[in-house]
């Protein structure tokens, strides 16, 4: 067993070791390498953003962690328990991309169903459902069928469903895709709320602005390879540069600043309006590689 005498905190919520997933293409001698030798840890309490363009392997990695598909080699664990064990899923709640759930169930029935599937029942489950409906702000829509829910409401019932058995880890796949900005903000606030309650979150997304707002740590997958991984501030700050954000400064003042910097041997790289730095970093990382080498995901068998 993996119980650490120094406390549970040192067991990673998610541990991925040398994970490789290869899909054969039927009737052809080619194979697609979806994930290649991926290793990463998500520590308890973190909000971890797994980023990557479509087809980068982040869904595959996530499905392997959840035990939905099996790895070609390597292993994944949730709080020290191997993903191939059904028990490992007691500690994880999952919100898939674009969920619809059962259209004919009401919000309350949906939560009740997922609670029962987790082995819950009775008065305890009823209180839990009411509590969760309140948490995600759907108490007024509890008796409406999911067929009449908006996209944002579906995502929120999805979050509530993921939390029904009080898991310590949430895995969210594109939780704000297709949701309007206001709904998107609500979901973001909920995730921050979960974080405050000590729930670990693995967030897969390509909406970088949002990731930057809530994630502590990020990993970037590109063609199945983890190309960058680390704390968000570390990754997006450039060590020998400093960004000054000025407010209400006249062009004359700016000119004086520039002169001062150049006199001291420095260089003003550019002057611009502030923007999401993660986005530029992300595009830098991925587009730089695309031109430099052949995409690694298609390898011919000898």
């Amino acid at each position: 067993m993996n119980i650490d005498p120094q406390g549970l905190n040192t067991i990673p919520a998610i541990s991925i070791r040398n994970l490789t997933k290869v899909y054969p293409i039927p009737f052809r001698r080619e194979r697609v390498v979806a994930v290649k030798d991926l290793s990463l840890d998500v520590l308890p309490g973190q909000v971890y953003g797994l980023l990557g363009p479509n087809g980068s392997g982040k869904s595959t990695a996530m499905k392997i962690v959840l035990g939905l598909i099996s790895p070609t080699s390597g292993q994944t664990q949730i709080f020290g328990r191997d993903s191939s064990e059904v028990e490992s899923r007691e500690d994880v709640g999952f919100l898939p991309e674009n969920p619809y759930f059962y259209k004919y169930l009401t919000g309350a029935e949906t939560l009740h169903f997922f609670g029962k599937v987790c082995g819950l029942g009775g008065a305890k489950l009823r209180t839990k459902c009411a509590e969760l409906l309140k948490l995600v702000g759907l108490e007024n829509a509890a008796s409406r069928r999911l067929g009449g829910y908006s996209k944002g409401m579906l995502q929120r019932i999805g979050l509530a469903q993921a939390l029904v058995q009080d898991p310590r880890l949430l895995v969210l796949d594109e939780p704000t895709a297709g949701v309007d900005p206001a709904g998107s903000r609500e979901i973001r606030d909920l995730i921050l709320d979960f974080k405050a309650r000590g729930i670990t979150v693995l967030l897969c997304s390509h909406l970088l602005g949002q990731v930057q707002e809530i994630c502590d740590r990020i990993g970037i997958l590109y063609h199945g390879v983890l190309v960058r991984e680390g704390k968000l501030e570390d990754l997006v700050s450039i060590e020998n540069q400093t960004e000054l954000i000025l407010e209400n400064s006249s062009p004359a003042v700016l000119e004086q600043v520039r002169a001062l910097v150049e006199k001291s041997g420095g260089r003003v790289v550019e002057t611009r309006k502030p923007q999401t730095t993660l986005e530029s970093f992300f595009l830098d990382v991925t587009s730089g590689r695309r031109t430099a080498e052949e995409p690694p995901h298609v390898r011919r068998k000898e």
């Binding site: 499905k63 759930f101 599937v117």
Partner: peptide, 15 residues
């Protein structure tokens, strides 16, 4: 599969 309920259920501790 279309409604993703397969994934939500199997991501719960359900054999």
């Amino acid at each position: 599969i279309e409604d993703r309920t397969l994934y939500t259920i199997l991501a719960k501790p359900v054999p």
